[in-house]
Design a binder for these strands. Structure first.
Lengths: 227, 227
DNA sequence: TTAATTACGATAGTATTACTATTATTTTAT
DNA sequence: ATAAAATAATAGTAATACTATCGTAATTAA
């Protein structure tokens, strides 16, 4: 599937399409690995350049700065996630089931559905999303970035899930906020469970099935038809 | 009230207590103002030093780095918030009412309750919390920081709210996760409403009363006794 | 009271980061 | 085969994130 290799990324995210060259692909692939390993704050283009055997300047030809690279990675992930949701809820009857499947995907209940034959290490990617993705929009330049549509895949996923919620219960007043809450909490509760367990109810167990249970309970409680 | 001026801050947050000197207080007060103005990424000790008429090195005597200063500010805020919740729910009968008051405070439904006679500009502080607070724990050193109890006020607030939830419905399975969800979403939905409105249902209106309504609906739906 | 100690802030650094400008090399087009 | 274009490497600079040292002021100790 050509689409999987070239998920029409927004050109505002890069200076030169990393998908079109060997070094470009290494920037993404090893970038994901290095950010996961040392965290976004300590991550630099110099360190990445050393790892892939090139120079800083070369990487700057692909991305304006490390923030844009993170934004690219985050977009790639949400694009991929949106596709997973679409693909796995397709031809399923019942909005309740569709919502449950969506929660499964968001909370990383990985199984055969999530086969990936990408260059990007998808588990590393997920780890980055959990601890770094919000840094992409929590900036002073969020408005300009938004105008350049740098958050489109996130917004699209949020919209698609909100439409599921509306289909399940057309009277529910906050489908979009519930959708963004669910997406954020799939990541935050995961991060808390691992790193600050006292902020969750999944202390000892610590598997993402617990996050799934929590979100399912929360979402269906919120959406419950009161008649 | 002496307590308000000296909310027993964790000494691991600073090298030298900023409350004990004029310059120290300026570091906090002007630090809050400057971070709010230019954002945490562009904020430097040099810029802050220029603003308060001192040098970088002086500020480094108080705080190890800018991250610790942000951590101090965030702790101060959650400490203050925890006190607000405790004070305003005290002597109120009915856990439902207590929870509603807590949501009011979290979603910044400011009124006479929130009188502040601090040096810190409390509205600037709230703006910082909304867009910068998660950066304090979304790091690779979260575990070591947690061991030094740098997130105690947040964890305490989360715990206190979870106890309210448990009192309201002892059978609810996820009081802590619901509590951290509510705290995070009070800030995130506020940020989204202002900066990425399509992720919320409060597009045009855009007041924090909408966030309050959403959270009240969500929390009471989750906690609803099913019998 | 005076000497010693401590506290404090200012000066002047360094290593790293985040880039940019220029030059060299390779690729592609004709 | 040669010109044009694309690409990468070299070599920078300005800003950032600190650190080490020094002088002065305040505090305390004999």
């Amino acid at each position: 599937m050509q689409w999987q290799l070239h998920p029409e990324m927004n050109p505002n995210l890069f200076l030169k399409d990393p998908e079109n060259s060997v070094i470009g692909k290494k920037v993404i692939k090893n970038g994901v690995g290095l950010i996961r390993k040392i965290g976004f704050e300590l991550f630099t283009f110099k360190k990445l350049a050393e790892e892939i055997g090139t120079t800083e300047a070369t990487i700057y030809r692909y991305f304006e700065n490390k923030h844009k690279l993170l934004n690219y990675i985050v977009c790639w992930y949400f694009h991929w996630l949106d596709y997973q949701v679409m693909f796995n809820t397709h031809n399923i009857t019942g909005y309740s089931t569709k919502i449950k499947i969506t929660i499964d995907i968001l909370t990383w209940q990985l199984d055969a559905n999530h086969v990936n034959n990408y260059d990007i290490a998808i588990d590393d990617l997920h780890e980055i999303i959990v601890s770094e993705s919000s840094k992409v929009y929590l900036t002073k330049h969020v408005t300009e970035d938004n105008k350049e549509e740098l958050f489109l895949p996130y917004k699209k996923l949020c919209y698609n899930i909100s439409e599921l919620f509306k289909a399940y219960n057309p009277n529910y007043k906050y489908p979009k906020s519930l959708s963004s809450t669910m997406i954020e909490m799939a990541h935050y509760q995961d991060f808390f469970m691992t790193n600050l367990p006292s902020l969750t109810d999944f202390g000892g167990k610590g598997d993402n099935a617990s996050v799934k249970d929590f979100l399912e309970n929360l979402v269906f409680a919120a959406l419950a038809k009161k008649d």
